[in-house]
Write a protein that binds this DNA or RNA. Structure first.
Lengths: 209, 209
DNA sequence: TAATAATTCAAACGTATGTTTGAATTATTA
DNA sequence: TAATAATTCAAACATACGTTTGAATTATTA
């Protein structure tokens, strides 16, 4: 992949995450990447294809990281537990160096993808990653997925996706609205310690139900 | 308020929620509302002001509903519990007739407001509803908000907002990706029964922490 | 080195957007 | 009813966008 393509991809990823797809012009991307605007269509064909390429790079990394961890667990010949699946997904998102800003950018991209209707993107992801996705969902469902709770699990999954996407993507937004006393930063480790039990709590029925 | 203003407001609310702000042109709004395009600037001044007006109508209803319920509780001279605050917020969102599609539209608007950077909107909301917002946050914090857990509570609140926004806003999106077996619909009552315990679980520390 | 392919570039194209204009129409007031 | 204000309307404005073009430049191949 030529350096021009990479420069475009990097800046597109950054700007798309920060501002959204429709809000980011090709001129802004090529200007930041210091390349000619026509090179986007030369290397990627169109803006839609560029969006897909950005997601493809992330999803490739994510699922290969997730699947690698699952494979290791499978070698031990034990069933993949729900907690293991959650941790594997989080680690795959953070990368091996637990880079939270990387995961954050991924979440921001996902949020934009869900908020803005990008039909082409949905089709692309479905065509290329549906199998990986369904397998991960099965792991996340864990043992608690009985026939009659499939619907509930679907909604719990929505809650979890929303919590993950919104919280990571919104480092700054709520700060501006909420009281400044909440403004302090949290470490990656603390955040994970907070999020993993919460994720488990969201996915599983609670005692009071 | 003239019928033209109302027609514009109604259609703007619907289209903004469905598509986002930048994705909805004034021509689409005025066409759906069957009014002349210039009437937007005549009645509202600008597109930004129209966006603010849409939010203002929602927030007015929401906080007056929420505050009314809290006032009733305050008359009984008891401390407002966290669960009461959550239920009051949910009911205020749904309206007295528990109209879930109304709440859903509100969540979709909020999601777009967070995803797309609408600085003017944030300023507007902060100028007009900051007091209401902070009061509600205090209620939601409940008894568990010790000095050293303020940071954690801030993040729990993020989780909760994300879960609420994303799940309600995404009736259809995940369906298209996930297995069709999860496609069945859930009733408002079932959803509330599922969400309220989840919300409590998100906001409060769990045993395993 | 000469010929060919790949890539970059400045410029333009067509289209869609928010906004403004000034006349035409309707509603209100005196 | 006449005068005045409020509102609607078709048309145009300036601007920004994604995309395309064809020549210029660079890299690769024979």
């Amino acid at each position: 992949m030529s350096t021009t393509s990479l420069r475009i991809l990097d800046q597109a990823e950054r700007l798309f995450a920060e501002q959204g797809f429709n809000e980011t012009s090709l001129r802004a991307i090529t200007s930041a990447a210091e390349v000619n605007i026509a090179s986007v269509n030369y290397h990627f064909g169109s803006k839609k294809n560029l969006i897909q390429a950005v997601f493809n790079r992330y999803l490739e990394d994510f699922y290969s990281g997730y699947n690698a961890q699952i494979s290791v667990l499978a070698l031990a010949d034990t069933e993949v537990s729900q907690r293991q699946a959650i941790e594997a997904a989080i680690i795959a998102m953070l990368g091996t160096d637990l880079n939270v800003s990387r995961a954050r950018r991924f979440m921001m991209l996902l949020r934009h993808a869900y908020a803005q209707q990008q039909g082409h993107l949905r089709r692309f992801i479905q065509d290329h990653y549906n199998e990986d996705y369904r397998r991960m969902i099965q792991h996340l469902a864990g043992q608690n997925l009985q026939e009659d709770s499939k619907l509930k699990f679907y909604w719990r999954l929505q809650f979890l996706m929303g919590a993950a996407m919104f919280s990571l993507a919104e480092f700054d937004t709520l700060d501006a609205i909420a009281d400044a006393q909440y403004h302090a930063r949290i470490s990656t480790h603390e955040l994970l310690d907070l999020f993993i039990p919460t994720a488990l709590a969201i996915l599983n029925p609670h005692s009071e139900e």
